[in-house]
Design a protein around this nucleic acid. Sequence first.
DNA 1: CCAAGCACCTGACGGC
DNA 2: TGCCGTCAGGTGCTTG
Length: 271
Amino acid sequence: MPELPEVEVIARGLDASLRGRTLERVEPLSMTRLSEAENLLTTRVTSAGVRKVYRRAKVLLIQLDNGVTMAFHLKMTGRVVHGSSRQPDSHDRVFFHLDDGSLLSFSDMRKFGYVRTFATDELEEWDFLKRCGPEPLETPPEDLAQRIAHRKGRIKALLLDQSVVVGVGNIYADESLFRAGIHPEARAHTLSKQQRVTLFTELQAVLRQAISENGSSIRDYVNASGDAGAFQNSFHVYGKKGAACTRCSTILQARKVAGRTSTFCPNCQVK
DNA sequence: CCAAGCACCTGACGGC
DNA sequence: TGCCGTCAGGTGCTTG
């Protein structure tokens, strides 16, 4: 599901459409695995105004004007969509009814996602956020490169490790490694400083481009208005095993790295 | 510190 | 048509 660009696109869309609106009523649907705080959801967010909607790591945050912040993690298939009122379907987890008659829905086919509530001034104490590394778009590539300079793990695994840098998942890890000409199985400490800086510079570029193209839609992702993204049309390697490399025409290969399918060009990407 | 494996859960797709 | 295996934008826990 969504990586940084997709969550960022959703957050921007919701901030534009929800800011200043009031959540009048919460309608819990299939609450399976929503969170240990689910029983608090109804009381904590009813009749609360939306102050702002933003993103940290891959978490969507809705800050309310009553001292409460809601945190959504969409995991693989979660969706948060603001639209007109409708009947719930089997994947809907919770509905928020707004003062203008519109509907904010959280649905998740695979049920890995969750929504939790926090006292806004205690949000930073959340273990998940405390374990998170820096934001890739707000940190100089040189600083990110330094963080992995002495790590011996595979570079792909480190890109996916949210304590190294947040927001990167399987798509943008593979795409940034291709752009930087680095093999996913390369050990971080064997890369030159120049290679590491290039990698994070390319990561920033690919994330920015993906945001500008409304994210990547493979199966489930839609933005806050329910629309698909377009960046999947710009992939060089993700999901393209067996296709010709766009740069050298070598057939792209795939293998498991860090437990995830990793697609790369065996000619352009070196260890 | 690192790797690998499994777990969570549902649906889509391909092969026989 | 049906059954079975495999795979999927993520993360957490356990074991070695």
